[in-house]
Nucleic acid binder design. Structure first.
Lengths: 270, 270
DNA sequence: TATAAAGGTGAATCCGCAC
DNA sequence: AGTGCGGATTCACCTTTAT
């Protein structure tokens, strides 16, 4: 298995080619199946540039369920027994994803809430501001208890208090947000690096292999590199792969990990 | 239909006796199916008094799914077209509940995160502190858009900023927590009144009928009374009913609702 | 140059009535 | 069910333009 590469192809097909029990961590940011129908306008009459990508369209709940069952089943097969998986979603899809994972035998360790510090408001005043996304962190099964969790590191990272399942993190905007040649956002759902930093720092050791089956513009790969983990990405769109490769190649600064290293000396690769 | 009463009996059987399109709001706090097998101990070897009630035990996912499908189906039948439903749960059950609701045709309006200000830590350091529960707020279907949502009131309640889907509220402890004759907590999962206050204030008008099919020790009834709404409770355990009746009868103070009244004059009952 | 004002934007299931 | 139109509706943060 060649590491630190991006495989171009269909997620399920490419997952099938990977070996049993070979991956330490999976981070998956699948399509949410948002079911948006009409355009949304702000109070000043500008149009919201929402998600209307083809990759987010499914014909029915049943189609979406079949898709998720297929890739989640492969993920469980290729995960090591000490490995865990993270799946991120919104209320549009996370309940279906959670049920499918439970039915496949996954064991939920935490439902982590990404509490957005700067969510888009509900302009019409018809609901509460939707301020969260949910991450499911799961082991392969209830019986497997030797999964990696760097409790001390996360406690230190959190100001010497045990980190909770609520993570207050801003949206990916500004410098960090990748732009296309037209100056517009290159990917409609790029995740903030801080989110991936917490994921990778908490649930991998140095040298572990992190797989992202919906690689997009490569936030998982970028953070893995900055934290000196190996990564493997699967992505269908050549345009995203191009951006991701360039992004990762240009990384020259690494995250400070002094605390983590201090607490995990025995895990370090010589 | 006699209002402001508690019906003793099986939740599903009693729901079946209620009329179509007759309820304005449902708040449901069903069994979570926690699947706790071994006792949990604190670092000092004291045992954690968790949920170990018979009513929280189900033989399998399928049994739990059947149970939830049955009561959620009845709830959808008895809700008015302008009504909505809230269901609270944890990661143990909320994904199954959410999927069942979607499959029954409910339409998710928000997934509200109850962010506990004082959650129980993870003593073993094996996971992140589980600091949330999730509330699903749903209408009967996608097409029904005339549900009650007191946007302005909630905005005022929240310091003149739109209220988000994250509610920071403490656990129900201290004076508010009902105790049995032995001084121990009377109910293992009593919810804080602040939670119900936000639910009822945001999604009912004065005089509306609020149904709680898992009434327990009556937090829903108590808050409904304090906010001058009518309530209807269903509860199987006579012991809980006794406590709830006494609790609600003793209420003499009402929540201040000046802001709400100011913003909703047209809705007031003469 | 510095500060202020104006404009843009983010995984969004976002109106209600008359015809 | 679809269309048209009057009217009510937003928060944090970053970028660009104006003073």
């Amino acid at each position: 298995m060649r590491l630190n590469t991006i495989i171009q192809g269909d997620c399920i097909e490419e997952l099938k080619k990977l070996s049993d029990n070979s991956i330490d961590l999976i981070f998956a940011d699948p399509p949410y199946n948002m079911q948006l129908e009409n355009a949304l306008y702000r109070p000043n009459n500008t149009k919201v540039d929402g998600v209307d990508d083809e990759w987010d369209k499914f014909g029915s709940f049943s189609e979406y369920d079949d898709f998720c069952t297929a890739w989640l089943k492969e993920c469980r097969r290729i995960l090591k027994d000490t490995g865990t998986i993270w799946v991120i979603g919104s209320y549009h899809n996370i309940f279906r994803v959670g049920t499918i994972m439970l039915n496949l035998g996954y064991w939920i360790l935490n439902d982590v809430t990404w509490y957005k510090t700067n969510p888009m408001p509900n302009f019409m005043g018809t609901r509460f501001t939707n301020a969260t996304e949910t991450l499911l962190w799961c082991s392969k099964s209830k019986e497997l208890k030797k999964y990696t969790f760097n409790h001390k590191s996360m406690k230190k990272y959190n100001g010497d208090k045990q980190m909770t399942s609520v993570w207050q993190i801003g949206l990916c905007i500004g410098e960090e947000r990748l732009k296309g040649k037209d100056g517009k956002k290159a990917h409609s759902t790029q995740k903030p690096e801080e989110l991936l930093k917490r994921v990778i720092l908490s649930t991998t050791k140095q040298g572990d292999i992190v797989l992202d089956p919906f690689f997009g513009t490569g936030t998982t790969g970028a953070v893995a590199k900055k934290l000196k983990r190996s990564f493997l990405g699967i992505e269908r769109e050549p345009e995203y792969i191009k951006l991701a490769k360039n992004r990762i190649a240009n990384i020259k600064e690494y995250f400070e990990e002094a605390d983590w290293i201090e607490e995990n000396k025995s895990l370090l690769i010589p």
